[in-house]
Design a protein around this nucleic acid. Structure first.
Lengths: 216, 216
DNA sequence: GCTAGAATGCTAAATATTTAGCATTTATAG
DNA sequence: CTATAAATGCTAAATATTTAGCATTCTAGC
């Protein structure tokens, strides 16, 4: 009963389609912390992360960045602008040197209509993300703080492509992502560290034992 | 800046396609509280609610039903079995006399590949639901209990098609859906009732003033 | 109409969580 | 190497929430 893993759009695409997409769109490069999309901007299109990572969140009145999630190589975002007629929910900014393939509305629609396997891959991606989101909402409702944090760390490692287990997360980010206070986060992280399933750094958390972290 | 509303699959489909779907699938009838799908059953396919409503949730060890959501006429479910290779997350049971159009995996795939407008409508539906889910997770993290309940009531009325504003929800259901205790739910409902935006019944809640309920 | 079961109402003690500080550690820019 | 800002560590009081009861109200089915 191994759980199916969340596969990125690029994973789901036939190789030749990625080439077509490269032709249809344009690759843009960003440096660390550079803004890619403003929150609620009115651009429409699909963005595919070719290299690097993208952080989503927003700035508070005091100019602090509040993180809601990170996506890594192969993942895409912007579906909501194409299919749900909604504005972008979050600001997107580069995390490290990042290359993003941007496909505008018209190019996207043309490909979507003429390439069933592209349409299918996109739908699979969105459906997987829906499942993740429902799952996350479930976490928020049912789990203890400690367990919620554990699941968030594992999810971030997975979607962000942090295969070495080192996550660039501040305790403030975790607090914001879970809607709890920094004091509570600190307390729970302390417990997890004592159990030796994670180790804490300055602005980062390392997953030391993913297996045991998954079942608290 | 009127927010785009969540449109059901049937709303999004061209009329002739609904006919095709009826031919490709089969309509099944259910009576109140009859089980439609067991949680984690291994059936694969799309279900479209033609008439009536479907409640999603699960039974506890003590045999009590815990509600997570209700979908009304025109809405569909089961996308996750088709596109994300996951088991059904919840048990589905009829709420009142209900007719559901069931489309099996093969029929679905055939139509999906040969009818771009069907593929698009399905993707739009899933994307909208993703947006709803992200929005709900945001509610859980940011809002006061009172505000969370208000949003849940409005969302249930919308997705369940309860146009008269009378929602068949027990306080226990709200508590479970939000991951809080029944005492807290009762307290918040009391406040909302005093503000005359809802009125409480036995096993039901009536939205008395949707506009003021939306901005607590 | 009665009755059993279900749902709600109510309460206070126990527990969990936040708030609002300030101290300490760490990384970065100069 | 140092100064600075950022992040974490720590604390206690204030607040919010749950727990675990039992009482009351409501409804469906007989």
């Amino acid at each position: 009963m191994s759980a199916p893993t969340h596969r990125s759009l690029v994973d789901l695409l036939p190789a030749d389609l990625l080439e077509k997409l490269r032709t249809a769109g344009q690759v843009k490069d960003f440096t660390d912390r550079q803004m890619i999309h403003a929150q609620a901007d009115n651009s429409i299109g699909l963005s595919i992360i070719l290299e690097g990572r993208v952080r989503f969140g927003h700035y508070t009145e005091q100019g602090k960045f509040y993180l809601t999630g990170i996506l890594g190589p192969g993942h895409c975002y912007g579906e909501v602008t194409l299919f749900a007629d909604r504005l972008r929910a979050y600001q997107a900014e580069a995390f490290g040197q990042t290359h993003v393939l941007m496909i505008g509305r018209n190019a996207f629609n043309a490909l979507y209509d003429e390439e069933p396997s592209f349409a299918r891959a996109v739908t699979q991606t969105i459906t997987q993300r829906l499942y993740e989101s429902l799952d996350f909402a479930d976490d928020l409702r049912r789990l203890t703080i400690e367990h919620r944090i554990a699941r968030l760390l594992l999810r971030t490692a997975r979607l962000g492509g942090f295969n070495d287990g080192v996550l660039p997360l501040r305790q403030t980010d975790l607090a914001f992502s879970l809607g709890i206070s920094r004091v509570s986060v600190g307390k729970a992280l302390d417990t997890l560290q004592q159990r030796k399933v994670i180790s804490l750094g300055y602005g980062s958390i390392r997953i030391a034992d993913a297996t045991r972290l998954a079942v608290p």
